[in-house]
Design a binder for these strands. Structure first.
Lengths: 202, 202, 202, 202
DNA sequence: GATGAATGAGAATTCATTCAT
DNA sequence: GATGAATGAATTCTCATTCAT
């Protein structure tokens, strides 16, 4: 709907390949030559589409922001309630589904993203999301639970991958969709304690 | 009386400064020149103490491993029980206390650590810890809860820092020690569900 | 009309200059900076045309191999005879004529060439040539004569240069073409004894 | 008889090890650290015995010069004759016997030795030797034969080594002493033509 | 007779970037 | 829309050398 160049889209292919490589080796260690090579074009071609390497990064980050922004926009219209909180988690999880490379990408490039302008925008969005989940007058503990709750959605994929490498746990690894259910369950559980007084768990 | 290098321990000073810089800007973006400059020595001096840049990294990682290994060694002697699980979390939290730069360092350099040999050793240790927490015949969900539970210990510090930057939440930020209590509480809460059937939270 | 780089062929110019410098100071002591400076380009330009310093070396070696390979290819088609032997020497001498810098280059960089992969290819070629000169069932002595016979072609140039530096012998130094005749004569003489029994010269 | 430090002689051990390594990898590519490591001492220790790396080289070259100088001294006392010529070759061959590493060393480090002061001394000696072999009023061709004749002594060892690597010729490789006989025979043969008019060999 | 710590100079190599075509 | 050629700045790393102890 909002694509700029419907087809034959080199620009989009660059973003795709770049994201893959940034996710695999990190932003710093990925050179423009690698991106160009994998695309079968020259480095100079990248500069036709993006002004700098950082611009490519920004392009990727932006492409991920849409679903998060949708969730925020929706959430800001609603009155706070535990149900809202859960619904935000569900929408966030849905938005992230099928974006594993992007998730990995974010997970792996935190110092870079943070230092690179594009980072503050992204951080601001994540904080906005967690604010919506915290209700009025949250304690610090509430904030922590909200943030970890969202984190659980993303991190579950990586735990699955780590298990896959481990002979002991590799056996009964659930499939993609079951994994998402687990992530959601754990995330909701964590969020469930938000706003409740500590019940002496310690 | 005041020698240029207070206590001969250049090697240790290198590790310290390197960790700080790696944590701040990431491993890749930190050059040996920066490390040397901040120490007031030449680049070549670093090479007298470490064979490669990667060796410096390994040195840092190893210095963090001791407390984790202690926790593992202890845990492997015990019979499994929920109480053991909680005790492991407590020991882990205690081991991490006061090591904020190290924590940040790990959080920020995942792709590098992973690709750099030293990574697998570290990952193996973390997985051993989570295995101890899972009890016999864990489900995938149990594994996820165990992993996120440990993660909560580390991540809480960063959430605090993020809040500090945010005018809305900066006000009532708790102090270091209270933060650790929060982290522990949240972590134990998450771990509490390990081994229990899903109670229809979703 | 007078562009900075007369005939676009930077790659070839690099090979030329590199060979000259390698011949003069040796491969190890010649830095890429020297090569670049003498060409009026930057070091990085060299890397546009060659992947490594070693690749430049390989390029030079390969450029010398053609005439040798021609001689081998021709020789392998022929039946062995003393006449063949002499003809191989002549073809080799002809192939080397006018390649003094290359010859010097080889003479001076033996340890490097040997250790650098490109070396075994070259050595193999020289051995193939000597094999053609040895006839069937050669003795070790035959091999030695064959090898030294070829060596004589190359080495004569350097002896001439050494004489040039020596006041006593500098006077009646022959010119380039007469030098080649001498080399050929000596070489053929040495080869002449191949296959003949020792005549009690000792 | 002329050793300076009879026993426990680090200085001599340094020369030995250095020669070996220079012969194997070349002077430039051999670092003082390698030498020190193989000796089980520190780099700094080398500096106790030699002022510079170049001094180590000079030490090696000098240690080789003695037998050559003896041959020269003896030769300069004699009247020229073909018999003298042969005797010089024999003395040179004898002097070189059992010094394979040294020979290799010289063969491999020509550009360095030439550029390093020590080089001219050595070259002068070799030229003096060849002069003694040439008789009065030598032609350029005589000089070439004389030089190659000496070269044959040294080069035979390397040809043997090359054959050893070659499956086709490795079989009937003669032993050390027989190799020396071959070298001497070939050398004398080459020298035999000195002073005689070309006999239409071409 | 030797070491431990450090230096200064320089090496090869990589990279983001530019620009004429 | 893209390429080929090149650059400038930086990076990791190596090395001969020095010197206080």
């Amino acid at each position: 709907m909002t694509t700029q160049t419907p087809r034959g889209d080199t620009r989009a292919r660059i973003l795709d390949v770049a994201m893959e490589l940034f996710a695999e080796h990190g932003y710093e260690k990925t050179s423009l030559r690698e991106i160009a090579d994998r695309l079968g074009v020259t480095k100079a071609a990248l500069y036709y589409h993006f002004r700098t390497k950082e611009d490519i990064l920004a392009g990727i980050v932006d492409s991920m922001s849409a679903p998060i922004e949708d969730a925020i926009a929706w959430g800001e219209q609603q009155e706070y309630s535990p149900g809202l909180r859960d619904e935000i988690i569900r929408r966030f999880a849905e938005g992230m589904a099928g974006r594993q490379p992007l998730l990995r990408f974010f997970h792996e490039n935190q110092p870079t993203i943070r230092e690179l302008a594009v980072g503050s925008r992204f951080k601001e969005r994540m904080m906005a999301l967690t604010r919506l989940m915290q209700g009025p007058e949250p304690t610090f503990e509430d904030r922590v639970r909200a943030a970890i709750s969202l984190m659980a959605i993303n991190v579950t994929q990586f735990i699955a991958e780590a298990c896959a490498d481990d002979p002991a746990s590799a056996a009964q690894l659930p499939d993609e969709s079951e994994r998402r259910d687990v992530a959601l369950r754990v995330s909701l559980d964590i969020a469930d304690r938000i706003g409740k007084p500590a019940d002496g768990a310690q």
